[in-house]
Design a protein around this nucleic acid. Structure first.
Lengths: 207, 207
DNA sequence: ACTTACTTGCTTGTGACAAGTTTGTTTGTT
DNA sequence: AACAAACAAACTTGTCACAAGCAAGTAAGT
């Protein structure tokens, strides 16, 4: 009579139930993190503001760290989709430029996602836990990806830097730029900063 | 008979008393922050581990945020002294190279100070409070200083970047490099990363 | 005597867990 | 095939432990 997704109030499978509550808690968490930061955002408010009880997030993920780890993965997945879409039809150094452009577009279209994602990144630095390993993996893969991009650049062959060193410089420029923007959003024009990063990267790669 | 600083158990002035407890709490806090992170470090443990009662840090600074703000200032001051010493007798682009070298030396001589300082920086991103403004000031001044350095470089005159844009790229490289090192200390060789940053900066400035 | 440095007791709020309730799924009987 | 009982999974509520923050007290310096 009514499809499971069309009428959410009628019978859903267990998988659909938890997928929906997960998704709504993620959305609520992003809002709260942008507003109050990962620390002040409470699991209780994430649950209630998603339309459930105060205890759901803690029940589902056991700890706040694990919940944030899942949220990081969720946000990272969203970003990777955009990135893959934007770099699909490029080659050589254009891929690196396209990656930065994808980030500029992401800032424009989903600023809250980016803000929440990087607030969680910087939050995770705090202490050592399971979530730390997830972050190490993500950043390790980002550098690996940059290495793959740069070794395919004709311009790069003459550079004094190793591909791995270039990838570290690339990530440093991106992370450090976003950091400055998060600290002083009214002083830093992130779009422009990233535009400058493109020419910096060209010079670092082609020197 | 005994100078106030030589014999700490005998009579001290009120100013000396609080200066000493401040200093010991800062040292204790740095240790705890490096070990457990700014979040898990508690004001109670900072007090007791400094040799005082659990309540002293909260009494002196009212809130944890204000305490951390003072600690950031303290650590930033230590770093600025080292930086000024290292860049005193330099000019032109050598000043920028010397600044990075100073950071490399700071990492070697006081790795815990740097770790604590940047953990506090990234911790402060979390939410908006008085401490945020201190961080904005510090980073604003760092960029201003980089602007002063770069405008004195003969190599820079032909660059497409504005001095302000160069300063942002400079800070991004430093902050983003240290970030990656904090996340993955065993994967990132910070000294080498900073060495590469020197040549990156040369190319960004001289392009 | 008075002020400043420091301590102790208490309140509140948050993370974490355990026990209970509701909703969805499977199995056995007619 | 239809129904109901048994089961499992999603979700809620009660409670504890611990840390921040505040207020009232004690000790040290002026």
């Amino acid at each position: 009579m009514s499809s499971p997704t069309a009428n959410r109030r009628s019978r859903m499978t267990q998988a659909e139930r938890s997928a929906q509550s997960d998704s709504q808690m993620f959305d609520a968490a992003i809002r709260l993190i942008v507003d109050q930061g990962p620390q002040r955002a409470t699991l209780a408010e994430i649950g209630t503001s998603a339309g459930y009880s105060r205890g759901l997030a803690a029940y589902r993920y056991k700890t706040k760290d694990v919940f944030y780890s899942a949220l990081i993965e969720h946000l990272h997945h969203l970003w990777c989709e955009e990135l893959d879409r934007s770099t699909a039809d490029t080659s050589g150094f254009d891929t690196i430029i396209a990656a930065v452009t994808a980030l500029q577009n992401f800032v424009r279209s989903n600023p809250d996602h980016l803000r929440a994602m990087y607030k969680l990144y910087y939050h995770t630095i705090d202490h050592h836990s399971e979530i730390t390993q997830k972050l190490q993996e993500i950043h390790h893969n980002q550098r690996k990806q940059a290495v793959r991009w740069i070794v395919e650049c004709a311009e790069f062959s003459g550079s004094a830097l190793s591909p791995e060193a270039f990838a570290e410089q690339y990530c440093a420029l991106i992370f450090g730029g976003i950091y400055q923007w998060l600290v002083s959003p009214e002083q830093i024009d992130l779009d422009q900063l990233l535009e400058h990063s493109k020419s910096s990267l060209r010079m670092i790669a082609g020197g």
